[in-house]
Amino acid sequence: MTVDAPDADTPEAGDTAAWDDWRTYGEPDLPRILAAALEAFVEHGYHGTSIRDIAAASGLSVPGVYHHYRSKQEILAALMSATMDELLGRSRAALASAGDDPVARFEAVVESMLRFHMARRGQAFVGSSEMRSLDPDERAAHIALRDEQQAMLRVLLEEGVAAGVFATPYPADVARAISSLCVGMASWYREDGPQSADELVVRELAMARALADSGATG
C-alpha cells in the first residue's frame, strides 16, 4: 500500500454504506473457508498450506472446499480482495463523515487506515507477504485496489497543500510515508500493549500531520 497511484476522480468514489460505523471492529466478516485460510496463511504461509489444511480447519471435506473455490489460488485472491474491499470501504466512509475541512478529511482517512491495520493484522500481513503468491492477473487487480487507497491519501494531501493547511512540497512522497506508517502498525500493535488503540491513533495522527507539514524549503 505504499506505491505511487494514478489520479483518482474523487476520493469519495465508491460505496460507503456498509462501513458507516468505520471506527468499530468485530471479528472479520469472512466466509468460513476464507477465515480458515487466513489463519493457515498467517501461521504457515500460502505455500506451506494445503487445501486439505483449509478443509480441516473449516470443517469441510476437500471436495466441499472445491465446491466453493476452484483452487487455493482462488481462495487467496478472494481473501485479499475482501481485505482491500474492507480497507477501501472504511476509508471512503471515514472520508464521507469528515465534511469539507481538508485537515479533518485527511485525518479521517489516516485514522481509518491506522485502525484497520491494528484490527486486521492477520489480513494486512497476508496482503503484504503473499502478494507475490498471486497469479499475474490477480496481482494486477490487487495492486489496482492498493493504488486506489494510495491515491485517496495523495489527493487529500494535495488538496490540503492547495488550501494552505499543509506545507509539504512533496505530497506524493508524504502519502507514501504515511501509508508505510499505517501499514507498519500491523507488525507491532498488540491489544494488550502499553497503549490503547485510541491512544496510538492520537500519537500516530500527530506524526502524520507533522509529515504533512514537513519538507518546506522556505
Rank of each mutant, 00 (worst) to 15 (best):
V62R: 04
E74H: 09
E74T: 13
D213Y: 01
G122L: 06
A186Q: 08
A124P: 03
Q123W: 02
T24I: 15
V103E: 14
V103C: 10
D85S: 12
S97V: 12
L34P: 01
G14C: 09
V62C: 01
D147T: 13
V201L: 05
R139C: 13
V62S: 08
E130H: 12
S128Q: 09
R105E: 10
G64H: 05
A18Q: 13
E107Q: 13
P194K: 03
T83K: 09
A197D: 14
A167L: 12
D29N: 13
E27N: 12
Q123F: 02
R90C: 10
A17F: 07
V174L: 03
C182E: 11
K72F: 05
L153C: 08
R154V: 13
A78S: 15
A17K: 04
V42M: 04
F116Y: 15
H44G: 06
A212W: 01
P6R: 03
A144S: 12
S97F: 10
Y69H: 07
R209M: 12
R203A: 13
L60Y: 00
L76I: 09
G164W: 01
D9I: 15
P102H: 02
L60N: 04
G193A: 15
A140Q: 12
T16E: 14
A78H: 06
L211M: 14
G26E: 09
P31R: 07
L79A: 05
S81Q: 14
F116H: 15
D101V: 12
L211F: 04
D21G: 12
M80H: 02
P63N: 04
A98D: 07
R23K: 10
L79P: 07
A186G: 06
L30C: 11
